[in-house]
Design a protein around this nucleic acid. Sequence first.
DNA 1: GTCATTTACTGAACACCATTCATTATGTTT
DNA 2: AAACATAATGAATGGTGTTCAGTAAATGAC
Lengths: 218, 218
Amino acid sequence: MFAVYIFVIRTTAPIIMGISERKEREKIDKKQLIRSAAMKMFLEDGYAKTSIRNIADAIEYSPGTIYLYYKDKDELLYEVQRDAYGKLLEEFKAKAKHKDPVKRLMQIGKTYVAFGLANPELYDLMFIIRAPTNVDEELHKDNGGDSYFYLLDCLQECIEKDLLKVTDLNLCALQTWSVAHGLVSLNLRCRLKMMVEEKDMPKVLNDAIESYVKLLIK
Amino acid sequence: MFAVYIFVIRTTAPIIMGISERKEREKIDKKQLIRSAAMKMFLEDGYAKTSIRNIADAIEYSPGTIYLYYKDKDELLYEVQRDAYGKLLEEFKAKAKHKDPVKRLMQIGKTYVAFGLANPELYDLMFIIRAPTNVDEELHKDNGGDSYFYLLDCLQECIEKDLLKVTDLNLCALQTWSVAHGLVSLNLRCRLKMMVEEKDMPKVLNDAIESYVKLLIK
DNA sequence: GTCATTTACTGAACACCATTCATTATGTTT
DNA sequence: AAACATAATGAATGGTGTTCAGTAAATGAC
């Protein structure tokens, strides 16, 4: 009985597996197709103005098909967000790699703010937009953690070498992220228009984060 | 000709003015009725989930009526926001009135963060939500300025008395607001769940803003 | 090679939404 | 009392997210 079972697997498995593997790949491809079309349209027109129908039209499938790959519009957003978090981490790895942790901290801050200014719609998607359906959203717990750990590592090194005026790692990370996020998100919501002219925005925000990091270091 | 004109005004004016004044008052009353119903429902169910129909139902008018008083859902949001900004200023006036400008600055920061924690939906309405229709929104230019000036006044006094490590008033105000807004808005978007437990949130955020103000002072 | 089964997809249907506008009802003026 | 102005209606328009019975194609078993 056992031997027969093995026999069956050995003869049919290669054919079955080859096809099911291809199908698996095609499924992933289609998920990516949907996700990249969605990302493109979210960035161009904003999340709210992008409908499932629009996305379906763009990839030339029916609306129903999207629901075969994503539970709802929210889940699609979350997976698009995950892609976006990767981009920020890439940016950090590319532009914040100074050996001196304090200088790296400064680079991280400036890179973050510049990223938010350069990709407003993307930033919105990542940190500001709330999916209407699931108000609870436990999902963000691990999402985007990698880029946060990049900051955390840097700060830890700073603190270990006793270069900062703050010694509590978590408090320091929270505070630093808050300054950067605050600057970017207040700008994105046009709350700085009353104080800063549009053309001066990059310089002003850059100065603000620079000033903050300088406050932080001994 | 001129005299006759005056005569006409003098006889008819009182009657006309009395009625039109009452009508004016009724109009304002109805606007307020709509606005306060909208505010209540925005806070209870969130902006996105509150429909014009729901609001109309709640005040027992037809949906069309709301459009006689507000151009669209966005305009209603803006006017509700204006009401909300007033609340924050009230909070400042009540809880941040220490004579010592540095201590007052600390009070302002803590009050702001506590306000955001205590009124998450209201805070959302004021600073985070974007009205879907008008992406441009020049409107925020003067909206909510009063509470910002409260901070600005305090910082100016601090700087004049040379109590801070930063001397640029606008930069300092921007930075301070950003820390506070960053803390509140990251929390509201569940981005701190990975680092801080829900029950510790008030203390952690309070510590973070306190630590920041301490960095700022000489 | 044929037939049953699984799989992928469709698109109409459902229950909402914001907004508009011809129509009706009410109050005011002459 | 008739003419007018104002306030309110609610059905209609054109959208939305989501579901699901039905279809067509690919696959597996014989």
